[in-house]
Design a protein around this nucleic acid. Structure first.
Lengths: 108, 108
DNA sequence: CAAATAGTTCGATAGTTGTCGAATTATAAA
DNA sequence: TTTATAATTCGACAACTATCGAACTATTTG
C-alpha cells in the first residue's frame, strides 16, 4: 500500500538524505550564499549575480571530480538544486521553492 | 583540521540523517502531533496532554521492537527527541528547540 | 517470588553509500 | 583537426545501515 501520503513521506526522507552527507551539506551551504539577502523568491538564474560552477564547488571540497558529480546528481535528483550547462561549465543554484517547503515542515 | 564550523556541520548532517529514514520520519511526524497547535515552546512534558510511548510508536510502524528501539536511540542521539521512563513505559517527545533551529536553517 | 509487559542489547545479514581511478563525452580554443 | 578543460559514467570496494530473532534487563502486578 503506497498511497500519496507515503510517497510524500518517502520524498521528504529522500530530501533529508541528500542533506545528510557533510560534503553535500557543504555544497548546499556554499550555493545558498549565491542568493543575496532579500532576493529569495525573485532569484533570477540569468542575472549571474554570483554564478557557481560544479568545478568551483569541487575545489572547496577535498574530494575528486567523480564524487562531486555524484553529489550534485543526488542534490538535483531530489530537487534541491537545479543545473544548466553554460559552455564548458555547468551552473548550479538552489531551488528556493523547496527551501520554503522545508522551512514550513519544521513548524510544529 | 576539525574546527568548530565543521563540528556544527557534521552535527547538522547527523540530524538530517536521522530524519532521512522513512520510519524515523514517521516517528517524528507522529510525535509532532502530540503538541497541540499553539503550545509549541510552552510544551510541558508533565502535562501528559497526549503522551506517546515507544510501544505506541511501534504499533504504527510495521517493524519489530528492536528496530523501533534502534530508531528511537538514533533520534535521541542527535537531540531531536527526548525520553523519560514512566513505570514500564518510556515516554517520548520532540525537543522544540531543535525544530526552531532547523526552521531557521532553511531561511536562505 | 513468579509471571507479564516494555524496552534494550547482541550478532548476523542483505542492502546502501561514498569514494576512487580509468575511460568517456561535451564544449571551447588554437 | 588537434588539444585542453569540464564534467559524467562505470566498476570496484570498504564502510555503514536497517532489519531481524534471540537473549537480556527493568518494572509492575499477583
Amino acid at each position: 500500500m503506497s498511497n500519496n501520503q507515503n510517497i510524500q513521506l518517502e520524498r521528504l526522507a529522500d530530501i533529508f538524505k541528500a542533506l545528510s552527507n557533510p560534503n553535500r551539506l557543504k555544497i548546499y551551504l556554499r550555493l545558498s550564499t549565491c542568493c543575496r539577502p532579500g532576493t529569495v523568491g525573485i532569484y533570477d538564474k540569468n542575472m549571474d549575480v554570483d554564478t557557481m560552477f560544479i568545478g568551483d564547488l569541487g575545489k572547496e571540497l577535498a574530494v575528486g571530480k567523480p564524487t562531486v558529480s555524484h553529489h550534485i546528481k543526488e542534490l538535483r535528483r531530489v530537487g534541491i538544486i537545479q543545473t544548466e550547462r553554460r559552455g564548458q561549465n555547468i551552473a548550479c543554484w538552489i531551488d528556493p521553492d523547496i527551501i520554503d517547503q522545508l522551512r514550513a515542515f519544521f513548524v510544529l
